[in-house]
Computed example of a mutant assay.
Amino acid sequence: MNLGDVEREMARLDRLYRPVATAPVDVSNPDAMLTACTAIDRELAEINADGRAESLLRAAVAAYAEGDDLVRAAVRGLFDRYEWFRWGAHFAPDWTTAEELRARLIHFSARDQGADTRDELLGLRDLLTRARRLGIDPAPVLAEVAAMSSDADRYGMGSTRDLLLRHC
């Protein structure tokens, strides 16, 4: 799949995720929040986006990992442009290998801090905690992915490269 194909599919899935992501939720009522979360899960299942999104993530991650700086910048631009896809598309949570850790760290790098560095950092910490619990040393892959990451400080908390290197 070339980057043009990736972008077309990402735009299509972005349009599917948008109404789910932007539906109002009453955060003052815990029961309403639980109902809303259940409804979101149901809506995502109905649009059947998860399998297509994961396949697309794998294609984007492969392009990012194999590409040069221009390709990586283009992939980061796609994740920036298609925010609802970025919001909704994730790898399956049940990973157990160093190769899957690498794919998730490349996905982290490609999102380039998303809309909020703090949220991204929480996800990164969870990812690294799981890796260590599985007996996977994340340091080598953190260094590898940091080398392909952006060095732009987007939100005043350091670049994605810096964030990854801090966790080596």
Rank of each mutant, 00 (worst) to 15 (best):
M1N: 09
N2Y: 08
G4K: 10
G4V: 08
V6A: 13
V6M: 09
R8H: 13
R8N: 11
E9P: 02
E9D: 11
E9Y: 07
E9Q: 15
L13V: 10
L13F: 09
L13Q: 07
D14M: 05
R15K: 14
R18P: 08
P19R: 12
T22Y: 05
A23H: 14
P24A: 12
D26E: 08
V27A: 09
N29M: 07
A32P: 04
L34I: 14
A36K: 09
C37N: 13
I40T: 15
D41L: 13
E43G: 00
E43T: 12
L44Y: 11
A45C: 02
E46P: 01
N48E: 14
A49C: 08
D50Y: 12
G51E: 14
R52L: 10
R52C: 02
E54G: 00
S55P: 00
L56E: 01
L56F: 04
A60V: 06
V61Y: 03
A62C: 01
A62Q: 11
A65S: 12
A65M: 04
E66K: 12
D68P: 02
D68A: 00
L70A: 15
L70Q: 13
V71G: 04
G77P: 06
F79A: 00
D80Y: 10
D80A: 11
Y82R: 00
E83G: 08
G88N: 05
G88W: 08
A89G: 03
T96G: 03
T96N: 04
E99L: 01
E100P: 03
R102T: 05
R104E: 01
L105T: 04
I106D: 01
I106V: 15
H107Y: 11
F108Q: 06
A110F: 06
A110N: 05
D112S: 08
Q113M: 15
Q113H: 15
A115Y: 07
D116K: 07
R118I: 08
R118D: 13
R118M: 09
E120W: 12
L121C: 06
L121E: 13
L122A: 11
L122Y: 13
G123Y: 09
G123I: 07
L124T: 10
D126G: 15
L128Y: 10
T129C: 02
R132E: 09
L134I: 04
L134K: 05
I136N: 01
I136G: 02
V141C: 02
L142Q: 03
E144L: 07
E144R: 05
V145K: 05
A147N: 08
A147R: 10
A147L: 06
M148F: 08
S149D: 04
A152M: 06
A152L: 10
A152N: 09
R154D: 04
G156Q: 07
G156E: 04
M157N: 14
G158E: 07
S159A: 06
R161W: 06
D162E: 15
L164R: 13
L164I: 12
L165K: 10
R166P: 02
R166W: 13
H167K: 15
C168I: 12
C168M: 11
